[in-house]
Amino acid sequence: MSDREDFLVGEFPFVPKQERALIKRNALLESGHTLFISRGYEQTTAKEIAAHAGVATGTFYRYFSDKRQLLMSLLEDKLDKLLPPEPSWLSGDPQSLLASLLVAHNKRLNELGLHRVLPELALKDSELAEILGAARRKIHARILSSLKQASEKGLTWRDLDLDTVSWAIMVLVENSQEKEARTGKLADYQEISKVICRMVFPPEVLSHLRNIADSNGLKC
Rank of each mutant, 00 (worst) to 15 (best):
A21V: 02
T156F: 11
P87N: 03
A51M: 07
F14K: 01
L22W: 04
L128W: 11
R20V: 15
E19N: 07
I143H: 07
A129Q: 13
P84C: 05
L29K: 12
D125F: 13
A181D: 09
G92H: 04
L132S: 02
T59K: 07
A53T: 10
R68A: 09
M199K: 08
M170T: 06
S96I: 03
A53K: 06
L160R: 05
V171A: 06
T156N: 05
F7G: 02
H140D: 04
A99Q: 13
V200Q: 01
K124W: 09
R62F: 10
I37A: 00
L112K: 00
S88V: 13
T57Y: 05
A187I: 07
N106T: 11
D93L: 03
L29A: 07
A150N: 06
H208D: 08
S166D: 07
I196L: 02
R158C: 01
S151Y: 13
R62G: 01
A168S: 12
S146L: 05
T57W: 01
E152T: 07
Q177F: 14
D161T: 04
T44E: 02
D214F: 12
S215R: 11
M1W: 12
A56Y: 10
K148P: 00
E11P: 02
L98I: 09
L128Y: 11
P13R: 05
L75Q: 03
T44K: 00
A141E: 13
D188N: 15
L74G: 09
A51Q: 13
E174I: 08
L147T: 08
I212Q: 11
S193E: 02
S126M: 06
Q190F: 13
H105V: 07
D163P: 00
S176M: 13
S166W: 11
F201P: 01
T34M: 04
A122K: 02
L118K: 02
L123M: 08
L172A: 11
K81R: 11
F14G: 01
Y41Q: 01
I192N: 07
L90Q: 04
G40F: 09
